[in-house]
Amino acid sequence: MDPIALDLDVMAAYLLTQAAENPQRRASQRIDLGYQQLRMTAIGFDTGGELPEHTNPGEAMLQVLRGRIRLSDATRTIEVAAGTVARIPDGVHSVEALEPSVMLLTALPLPGRNDH
């Protein structure tokens, strides 16, 4: 049976613990709700943890579940706080945690684009 629900609070607490223990100051968990194309990944960060510059593989957004992150691309930088959703820039971008944070990344890969 495919899972149809996931407790985000439990997952967020787990990822924050894992990120605090990881030298890279981040931890991730793929979320499998049975979709064929849509990809969801939860990423926990300790303060200063980051996803260095990388390219968006398609249409993507992030939702901050806990904490506050900085999302940057070549033309702008925005801070995204818990309870906020943001579109991932189409080009090269990076993410940095300004405090212990958890974000949910939802992406629909498009043909011909590189993967995260």
Results as ranks from 00 to 15, higher is better:
A19I: 08
A19M: 12
A20S: 15
E21D: 14
E21A: 15
Q24T: 07
Q24K: 15
R25N: 15
R26V: 11
A27Q: 03
A27Y: 08
A27E: 04
S28N: 14
Q29M: 10
L33D: 05
L33V: 04
L33A: 06
L33Y: 07
G34F: 01
G34K: 05
G34S: 05
Q36M: 02
Q36E: 13
Q37H: 13
L38P: 02
R39D: 00
R39S: 09
R39N: 12
M40C: 00
M40P: 04
A42V: 13
A42T: 14
A42M: 15
A42Y: 07
I43V: 15
I43W: 09
G44F: 08
G44H: 08
G44R: 13
F45T: 12
D46A: 15
T47P: 00
T47M: 12
G48A: 12
G49E: 06
G49F: 02
E50I: 14
E50W: 03
L51Y: 04
P52Y: 03
P52L: 13
P52W: 00
P52E: 07
E53L: 07
E53F: 02
E53W: 13
E53D: 13
H54I: 03
H54R: 12
H54F: 07
T55Q: 10
T55G: 08
P57G: 11
G58K: 10
G58W: 04
E59L: 12
E59W: 06
E59M: 09
M61G: 09
M61W: 11
M61K: 04
M61E: 06
L62P: 07
Q63Y: 09
V64Y: 06
V64D: 06
L65M: 12
R66M: 06
G67E: 11
R68D: 10
I69A: 06
L71N: 09
S72R: 14
D73L: 02
D73E: 06
D73Q: 03
A74G: 05
A74H: 12
T75S: 12
T75R: 10
T75G: 11
R76Q: 15
T77G: 06
I78D: 12
I78N: 02
E79H: 04
E79M: 02
V80R: 05
A82I: 13
G83E: 00
T84C: 10
T84N: 10
T84D: 12
A86M: 06
A86V: 07
R87K: 09
G91E: 08
V92Y: 01
V92F: 05
V92E: 09
H93C: 08
H93V: 12
P100V: 02
M103F: 11
L105H: 04
L105N: 10
A107V: 13
A107Y: 00
P109Q: 09
P109T: 08
P111N: 10
P111G: 13
P111W: 00
G112W: 05
R113G: 08
N114A: 14
